[in-house]
Design a protein around this nucleic acid. Structure first.
Lengths: 205, 205
DNA sequence: GTCTATACGCTGATAGAC
DNA sequence: GTCTATCAGCGTATAGAC
């Protein structure tokens, strides 16, 4: 693993974000110190502080691509005319995002620090709500709500599951989508719900 | 495993474990300091250290009932004769455990510290593997593995979802079970798969 | 961009009085 | 069971040299 040291052109900033993502996913955000990040990069803490003014800004930089991806998925899905179309597009977009950013997605879903961020930050909260509405419709009953909750958590959990790490992306995406649709009581996906390409892939673990 | 300390003498210990669970669930284990626990109890850190020799032992005490519950579920499920019976019993037991220990279940599933514990501790790892085998059978294909992974993560996610916090336990248990069975491509539950009563309920937040 | 050096609060943890 | 007092180490963060 040890994230592509060979990339000479790649800025120090990019390498820092990559190792931070890896450490955040493994130890959690609170469980990751700037010292750990610096050690992994082979530099000192001060060098880290040269790139980012605070740990919080590192967190922000790490999750930025995922937020951008989620925003793009929500935008695209909301543009559909039918409710089923919006739901299908959101689901396909989510599955695709998870596959291409496996660890990042799980971190977004499970880290308590992120949960606090979503709780407090209006923009993030709004994004989270938009996705929920896309999946469940405006006034979901308890059954739909439970299914949507399980799909969200299930997608994120599958994304990091080490037993699934070896699955090719295409297979993984198809299985995630099919299983999620079954959970939500939707029939097999139609071809129309093509994934979108918003955010870059996770740097290799 | 410090479940039933002598009613009078164990009062402080029980309260400590209860607030620790609440704080762990909210901020994660790494994000919870002994100072936070002490403050919530209205005592000093030294008083906390009088009850437990280390933070690690507090973590152990918090997750003990869940581990005991999981062990009981696995034992009961493995006693069934048919594979479908084992799978059904495991699923029903899991759903029941989650409902009665909502926050604890989610913490077990998502905290990086717990993940490390499971990775390193042979007993915990074995328990986790037993549950997986009960749900998927001995040699699962990729599709079954994805479904099982999503069910596990989904159950835990639903357990803490604030949108579902108001659902009565009976409703929640039934919906979790039905949705999980659908995800795993199993028909409606038969009456035989009755839940087991291993661990106490979460202490209120 | 990276380094050394440093500040200072908070961390988990210990010792001993009440 | 709880307290005060104290510890070494690590946490984030800053200043200034190279």
């Amino acid at each position: 693993m040890a994230a592509q040291q060979g990339r000479r052109t790649g800025g120090a900033r990019q390498r820092l974000v990559a190792v931070a993502l890896d450490l955040f996913a493994r130890h959690g955000i609170s469980g990751t110190s700037l010292q750990m990040i610096a050690d992994r990069l082979g530099v000192t803490k001060a060098a880290v502080y040269h790139q980012f003014p605070s740990k919080d800004e590192i967190v922000q930089a790490v999750i930025a691509p995922a937020l951008q991806g989620l925003g793009a998925v929500a935008d695209a899905a909301e543009a559909r005319e039918s409710r089923a179309g919006r739901r299908d597009a959101a689901l396909a977009g989510l599955a695709d995002l998870i596959v291409r950013n496996r660890r990042l997605a799980a971190m977004l879903y499970s880290d308590p620090v992120i949960a606090g961020l979503i709780r407090d930050h209006p923009v993030l909260r709004g994004l989270s709500d938009r996705i929920t509405v896309l999946l469940t419709g405006p006034d979901p009953d308890a059954e739909t709500l439970v299914a949507a909750s399980m799909v969200g958590g299930g997608l994120a959990a599958a994304g990091v599951d080490p037993r699934l790490a070896g699955l090719p992306d295409d297979t993984m995406r198809a299985l995630l989508l099919a299983t999620a649709r079954r959970t939500l009581r939707i029939g097999p996906a139609r071809r129309s719900a093509a994934p979108i390409r918003p955010a870059g892939r996770d740097t290799a673990a």
